Amino acid sequence: MASSSYVLLFALLALASWQAIASDPSPLQDFCVADNSSHVPVLVNGFACKDPKDVKAEDFFLAAKLDMPRDTKANKVGSNVTLINVMRIPGLNTLGISLARIDYAPLGENPPHTHPRATEILTVLEGTLYVGFVTSNPDNKFLSKVLNKGDVFVFPEGLVHFQFNPNPYKPAVAIAALSSQNPGAITIANAVFGSKPAISDDVLAKAFQVEKKTVDWLQAQFWADNQN
């Protein structure tokens, strides 16, 4: 019985430790402004901290003008993602949060993608969006919803999701908060068919159960990046 208790205790401690490293690190001080001028290589998550006596209000500020429309004509998918992360606001370092404005042209789409390090909560500011995500294997359950102005939807961390503007005449705008200072984005089509170097067409033909010439055609396309 005692040995079973020790095994259970060990398992709980291991789980707690895993959960502690499965998300952005919690700050142990008021802030740790990223020191972009540091020449010391950083080999762990996050960035070197600026000396607190050198920290200024500008380290927590960005004149992003998020109230201004973005260009949605620069790529084929008809959307523009303006991400505000630690690379743009050094004061976000260790705080575990970032923000994005997403503009959608009429019939524009933020194509299927994942954020490997963040849950996303999205609010529609203007227009209508058809959104959804797919759960992990083996169920691959598809959950979707049509959102109108003021509606909110959550995309769980790491799951494939998308947003599509179904209106052929009016644009749409959304704002998203993400639970990481650097959430990352993996656009599925770009990663699979636009990788450099290309994934073998034998591999992709087998995976998608299509002919290699179909894979070759897809790999020859220009896969637009809508991340700014």
Score class of each variant (00 low, 15 high):
residue 185 A to C: 09
residue 141 K to D: 09
residue 153 F to Y: 15
residue 141 K to A: 10
residue 135 T to K: 02
residue 167 N to F: 00
residue 160 V to G: 02
residue 162 F to T: 09
residue 145 K to C: 00
residue 119 T to S: 12
residue 124 V to L: 11
residue 179 S to I: 03
residue 114 T to R: 11
residue 121 I to N: 09
residue 157 E to N: 13
residue 170 K to F: 05
residue 113 H to Y: 02
residue 120 E to Q: 14
residue 162 F to E: 06
residue 176 A to V: 13
residue 144 S to H: 14
residue 116 P to L: 04
residue 143 L to Q: 04
residue 161 H to W: 04
residue 150 G to Q: 14
residue 139 D to I: 11
residue 153 F to W: 12
residue 125 L to V: 15
residue 182 N to T: 08
residue 147 L to C: 06
residue 127 G to N: 08
residue 162 F to S: 08
residue 174 A to S: 15
residue 179 S to E: 00
residue 121 I to W: 09
residue 120 E to D: 14
residue 143 L to W: 03
residue 117 R to I: 01
residue 116 P to F: 04
residue 116 P to H: 04
residue 115 H to R: 09
residue 170 K to A: 12
residue 185 A to M: 10
residue 147 L to E: 08
residue 170 K to N: 13
residue 172 A to N: 08
residue 144 S to A: 13
residue 160 V to E: 05
residue 138 P to N: 07
residue 152 V to Q: 12
residue 125 L to H: 14
residue 159 L to K: 03
residue 114 T to S: 13
residue 163 Q to V: 01
residue 150 G to S: 14
residue 175 I to C: 07
residue 149 K to F: 00
residue 149 K to R: 15
residue 131 V to T: 14
residue 172 A to Q: 09
residue 146 V to P: 02
residue 151 D to A: 14
residue 133 F to L: 09
residue 144 S to T: 13
residue 130 Y to D: 14
residue 153 F to I: 07
residue 153 F to R: 08
residue 135 T to W: 00
residue 125 L to Q: 15
residue 164 F to R: 13
residue 176 A to R: 06
residue 144 S to P: 01
residue 145 K to R: 14
residue 127 G to R: 12
residue 138 P to F: 03
residue 176 A to F: 02
residue 135 T to D: 08
residue 137 N to M: 08
residue 174 A to D: 06
residue 132 G to F: 05
residue 123 T to E: 10
residue 139 D to G: 00
residue 185 A to D: 01
residue 169 Y to I: 11
residue 185 A to E: 12
residue 113 H to E: 02
residue 177 A to F: 10
residue 124 V to M: 10
residue 121 I to T: 15
residue 160 V to T: 14
residue 179 S to W: 01
residue 156 P to S: 06
residue 166 P to V: 10
residue 145 K to I: 01
residue 130 Y to T: 07
residue 174 A to N: 09
residue 150 G to V: 09
residue 132 G to S: 04
residue 153 F to N: 08
residue 140 N to Y: 15
residue 184 G to A: 06
residue 170 K to S: 12
residue 175 I to D: 02
residue 163 Q to G: 07
residue 133 F to G: 05
residue 171 P to H: 12
residue 161 H to T: 04
residue 113 H to K: 03
